[in-house]
Design a protein around this nucleic acid. Structure first.
Lengths: 188, 188
DNA sequence: GTCTATACAGCGATAGAC
DNA sequence: GTCTATCGCTGTATAGAC
C-alpha cells in the first residue's frame, strides 16, 4: 500500500500544478522510481487514477473539515481555517484538485464527473452550515441565503487561486480573502 | 486573413472548452477543412497560436468594455453588463480563455505569461474604475478599496464559471452573481 | 510487484512539390 | 497557400518473463 500512496501523492501534486492533461505516467514513474509499466499494476488506466485522486482528495477535505470543527467552536474561526487551506494550496503553487479537474471536465471520462460533483457539494454543504451557524450567533450578516453565500465564497476562493497563478500576486489573494470575511462581519 | 481568423475562432473555442493541453492541430484542421501541416503556415508553433489567442481575446475584451462604456452611463449598469459577458460564456459551455490558461500556466511556454497577465490587469483596471465611480455616485458601498473589490469580483466570476463546469448548476451561477451585486448596493 | 519490450495511436513540426 | 509524406518523440496501454 505504500507505493500506491506514493504514486497518489505525486500524481495529486502533478494534477494540481499542471492539470490532468499536463502530465503523463512517465512523469510519475520518474519521481517514484519505478518503470511506467509498473504503474498500471496500481492504476490500470489513467481514468482509474483520476477517480482514486478525487476520492483521496475528498477524504483529505473531510478530514480537514472534521479537524476544523473539532478545533474551533465559532463560525468565524472555522471560516478562517477553511480559507487557510486555500492559502496553503497557493503557497504550494497548486490549484485545488477539484478546481483543476473542473476546468478540464469536458476532456475527462464521464465516469469521473459524479465524484467531482460530490467534492464540490461537500464544500458547499459544510460552508452553508458554518454560515448559517454564524448567522444564528449573529457573527455573520448575510445578504442572501446561507447556501448562496457558500457558493459565492467557494467561487471566490477557487477564482482567487486561479488568478494568482497568472498574476503571481499573493498579497492580492490575502486582500481578497480579507474582503470576503469583512463582507460577512458588516452590519446589514 | 479569412482562414487565419477562422483558425483563431476554432482554436479559441477549443481552448475555452477543453484547455490548451486538451486539443491538437488535428482538431483544428478537421473543423476548418485544411490539413494540419497547413496550419503551421499561419502559426508556426503552438506557442505562437497561444499568443495570438491571448492578443485576440484581450482585443475582444477591450472592444466589449468600450461598448459597455458607450452604452451605459451608470456604474451599476456597467457592472451588470460585465457580468453578462460571463453568463454568455457559461451558456456557450466555455471557460474564460484567460482563466483556462491561468490554470495551465505551469505547462505553458513562459513567453505567453506576460500577455496573460496583461489580460487580467485589463479586467481589474476597468472594474476598479467602475467601482470607484459607483462609489462616488453613492451607488456602491465598498468595504475595502475599489481595487480589492475589483479583484474579488473577478475571482468570484472566474470561480463561478469553473464550478459550474463541474456542478452543471447554472441557476447557482445566477444566484452567485446576484449576491455579488447585492453586496455592493448594501448600506455600510 | 517490477521488469523489458513493444504495440499503436497521437503529438508538434518540417521538407519539398504544386 | 495548401498539399503529401514523413520525422522523431511521447502518450497510454499490454504481454510475458522474473
Amino acid at each position: 500500500m505504500e507505493m500506491r500512496d506514493q504514486i497518489l501523492g505525486v500524481a495529486q501534486r502533478l494534477v494540481q500544478q499542471r492539470g490532468f492533461n499536463g502530465f503523463s505516467y512517465a512523469d510519475i514513474a520518474d519521481e517514484v522510481g519505478i518503470r511506467k509499466a509498473s504503474l498500471h499494476h496500481y492504476f490500470p488506466t489513467k481514468t482509474d487514477l483520476a477517480m482514486a485522486l478525487i476520492d483521496g482528495f475528498t477524504a483529505q477535505l473531510d478530514s480537514g473539515l472534521r479537524h476544523i470543527n473539532e478545533s474551533y467552536a465559532q463560525a468565524d474561526a472555522r471560516l478562517g481555517a477553511y480559507v487557510a487551506i486555500y492559502r496553503d494550496t497557493l503557497e504550494a503553487d497548486r490549484m485545488c484538485l477539484g478546481g483543476m479537474l473542473a476546468t478540464e471536465a469536458h476532456t475527462l471520462d464521464p465516469v469521473i464527473l459524479p465524484g467531482l460533483k460530490r467534492f464540490f457539494a461537500r464544500n458547499i454543504e459544510w460552508l452553508t452550515e458554518v454560515l448559517a451557524a454564524g448567522h444564528s450567533q449573529q457573527r455573520f450578516t448575510l445578504t442572501g441565503t446561507a447556501s448562496d453565500h457558500a457558493r459565492m465564497l467557494l467561487s471566490a476562493l477557487q477564482g482567487a487561486l486561479l488568478i494568482t497563478r497568472a498574476t503571481g500576486d499573493r498579497e492580492a489573494f490575502n486582500q481578497i480573502t480579507a474582503l470576503l470575511i469583512a463582507g460577512l462581519s458588516r452590519k446589514g
